[in-house]
Design a protein around this nucleic acid. Structure first.
Length: 717
RNA sequence: GGGCGAUUAGCUCAGUUGGUAGAGCAACGCAUUUACACUGCGAAGGUCACAGGUUCGAGUCCUGUAUCGCCCACCA
């Protein structure tokens, strides 16, 4: 049988498709061609100089280690659009980069050092610690870059960026100053989420709530105190300044406005009875002990009634700062002591078990202790001079007006809902890895009255200035990502050509953390949107639908997967049947199926390339194929890549291979048609399975371009 | 407490504007060296969660219910 083959067919087709060797070789060839860079495409005449642009910035992976399947999905999806647009003749730019990820990275390195050397970051000192983190980040970066290449991502490496490099630092300082000058960034004493374990503040979004059983204690401050209150945190009651009741609550009306002095567990306290509509008369006794310094809600109540915020009774290590038997006790120990004291004094009236959500820090798992601290904030409710709008409104508007489209659409509701609940954003962190807050202080106290002088943005002249010790929330710098990567604050050609970007593709889990912040920062800084379309992908779960995690050991490692089945197969498995916004279950079996498909395609090519290009074009088959072209094209244009991929798969395997090729056997008039279908099928499939399609294309002597990746997309006349 | 989503074949999921229910995988029967065994052919498999409504016609639109999942708020 073998001697029926056309001897011109490349020998490589006589063996099964070798994806390991091929994928590596092809990526290197692409990189060397320079064609990932749109300027190079223009220079080589592959794309017109005045062609419209298409741009995506890669959501920068954290330099905390290596990539997971979620990243693989992101790369597969983005590369589909990028390769499609490039073949459609756009000047197409996909900007790579990595994220320093502040807390996440620092805590990984801290844990590692603690484990291996038993040292804390304070043992090492700021400079040494930063050197260690930088080294770790560099190693992660190397791993990540090689993984990005393994997946076949057609990123323009000449424009690679890092959220913490010098250029991005300049962008951060410039935006910080601009916001400070507009009065949107302020420094203030406010209740923040303090993580005693990580020794830093965190933002509202970095909290995770865990449901636990807690005891609700009902008690009186003293024998002659008229009202009982209920609490799950008796130890904080030494910091109470008031009891709040609902204004309409008949039980307590007579006491409102009265003040009481007593000694609670060795601590003298002064309590005023106030009426506040936030109090739920049906919960507990209908009366709340108000602890302004250690609860956000109580802080707000204190604000409304001019009560003191100054009674601080817990420190940064979650220890009591009061005198007496609670002195320097941990809050958990203090709780037991207070309960014992209440019992011994006969003040405890009820003890019941309730379900409670406790706040923990996402990164360290530490129990959040609300504390008043002097921190930097972004004011989301202040009207911006000259714009007449608040940052909240700037975030809302482009999505409401449809200038930014979210896919799937229903996430718009989630987005609006989140903005409705948004409070000022605490941006300062007491960690070392990150952009240092660009503020310098010096005290001037010539006349004995010392006051503080502040300079924002650039380090001032003179050596008596001290820079703020804190660093910025990592999302502050990633919020600038679409324009900081394109050279802003300089007015670069890239910025002019490629901003706003066309699409942001990312997981729905960071819609608030990141996507909303990008819209806010870009609208404020440039008065423009950062991107036109937000394409949200879901989580990649294991075959049973569980989250992939280290502790479950059910992680699929993209490197293992590509070694076992090939990047093309992994990409197809991640795209087919995976609709935006929905979590997907991924099994090795599914990936294996697409490895088989790659081999099938290999053999289709082997068969067709062994035929002579003879016979008239079969118009019915051409028409049928052109319908496929039109369908696939509009599916990609309209973001239905999961359908597009499936359509080509189905056509190639079950129509072309099973029927058309079978029918053509022993006939000589199919050659022209088969070549037409093969060449154009490779183009249609290229965005999804770039390696094998390129490899086969390279074996077609009559191909129109050197590389399939810049071959013109098929057009239906 | 507020919001969002899902429910379609054994499993995983499509189903775009309302027009006689679709794919992959698995399982079943047949073929056995074929371009490809990483194969082919065939058959089987569904009350589209449930109850109403709109319509000539509903998996699709509307109302309600149930179950599961997620997000936000944080009630002291």
């Amino acid at each position: 049988m073998k001697d029926d083959y056309n001897p011109q067919v490349d020998e490589k087709f006589l063996k099964p498709y070798d994806y390991v060797a091929t994928e590596k070789r092809i990526y290197t060839a692409w990189e060397e061609s320079g064609l990932f860079n749109p300027d190079e495409c223009v220079k080589k005449g592959m794309v017109k100089g005045d062609a419209p642009t298409y741009s995506i910035v890669l959501p920068p992976p954290n330099v905390t280690g290596k990539l997971h399947m979620g990243h693989a999905l992101m790369l597969a999806v983005e590369d589909v659009f990028v390769r499609f647009k490039r073949m459609r003749g756009f000047r197409t730019l996909w900007v790579p980069g990595t994220d320093h990820a502040a807390i996440a990275t620092q805590s990984v390195v801290e844990k590692q050092i603690k484990k291996e050397e038993g040292k804390s970051r304070h043992d090492l000192g700021r400079e040494e610690m930063l050197a260690r983190i930088n080294k770790f980040a560099e190693e992660s970066h190397t791993t990540i870059v090689s993984q990005l290449k393994t997946m076949g991502a057609s990123l323009d490496w000449s424009r690679e960026a890092f959220t913490l490099d010098e250029k991005r630092n300049r962008a951060v300082r410039t935006v910080f100053k601009k916001m400070y000058d507009a009065g949107l960034i302020y420094r203030g004493m406010r209740i923040v989420n303090w993580d005693p374990k990580g020794q830093t503040t965190i933002s509202d979004d970095e909290i995770v709530y865990e449901e636990r059983d807690a005891k609700l204690y009902t008690f009186k401050y003293s024998k002659d105190f008229p009202i009982s209150v209920a609490t799950t945190r008796p130890e904080t009651k030494v910091g109470d300044v008031a009891v709040a009741v609902h204004p309409d609550d008949a039980r307590y009306k007579e006491f409102v406005g009265k003040e009481y002095d007593t000694v609670f567990c060795d601590v003298p306290i002064h309590i005023k009875i106030v009426a506040d509509k936030e109090v739920d008369p049906a919960f507990g006794t209908g009366a709340v002990g108000v602890t302004p310094a250690h609860s956000q809600i109580d802080w707000d109540i204190a604000d409304r009634h001019n009560l003191s915020h100054e009674v601080i009774i817990i420190d940064e290590y979650a220890r009591m700062t009061v005198d007496g038997r609670l002195k320097e006790k941990k809050t958990t120990e203090a709780r037991d002591i207070v309960v014992e004291w209440l019992k011994s004094e006969g003040l405890l009236e009820k003890e019941e078990v309730v379900k409670q959500n406790v706040s923990t820090a996402e990164r360290t798992g530490g129990l959040i202790e609300p504390l008043p601290k002097l921190q930097w904030f972004v004011d989301v409710n202040k009207e911006i001079a000259g714009k007449g709008k608040t940052l909240k409104e700037l975030m809302l508007e482009p999505v409401q007006s449809g200038k930014i489209k979210i896919i799937p659409e229903h996430f718009e509701k989630t987005y609006f809902h989140w903005i409705g609940n948004l409070r000022d954003w605490c941006i300062s962190r007491q960690i070392w890895y990150g952009h240092r807050v660009p503020v310098w202080y010096r005290s001037t106290g010539a006349d004995g009255k010392s006051s503080e002088e502040i300079v924002v943005g650039e380090m001032p002249e003179g050596n008596d200035w001290t820079q703020d010790e804190d660093t910025l929330d990592t999302w502050f710098s990633s919020g600038l990502w679409t324009f900081s990567t394109l050279g802003w604050p300089d007015e670069t050609e890239d910025l002019k050509n490629y901003h706003p970007t066309d699409m942001l593709e990312t997981g729905y889990d960071i819609l608030f953390f990141w996507v909303a912040r990008m819209i806010m920062m870009t609208e404020f800084t440039l008065g423009d949107i950062p991107f036109k379309t937000i394409y949200l992908h879901g989580l990649v779960r294991d075959a049973q639908g569980r989250k992939m995690s280290k502790s479950l050991g059910n992680n699929l490692d993209p490197l293992d997967i590509t070694a076992k089945f090939g990047a093309d197969a992994a990409r197809m498995a991640l795209i087919v049947g995976n609709t935006p916004g929905t979590d997907m279950k991924l099994s090795e079996d599914k990936i294996k199926g697409y490895k088989h498909f790659a081999n099938k395609l290999w053999n289709i090519a082997r068969f067709i390339l062994s035929q002579e290009r003879t016979g008239e074009m079969k118009e019915d088959l051409k028409t049928e194929f052109d319908t496929l072209v039109a369908g696939v094209t509009s599916d990609i244009e309209e973001f239905r890549i999961y359908l597009a991929a499936e359509k080509i798969y189905h056509y190639l395997w079950h129509r072309l291979a099973d029927e058309i090729i079978e029918e053509s056997k022993g006939k000589t008039d199919y050659g022209t048609t088969l070549y037409y279908i093969l060449e154009n099928s490779l183009k249609l499939l290229h965005p999804f399975m770039p390696f094998i399609t390129e490899e086969i294309y390279q074996s077609i002597p009559t191909r129109d371009t050197e590389f399939l990746m810049v071959a013109p997309w098929p057009v239906v006349e």
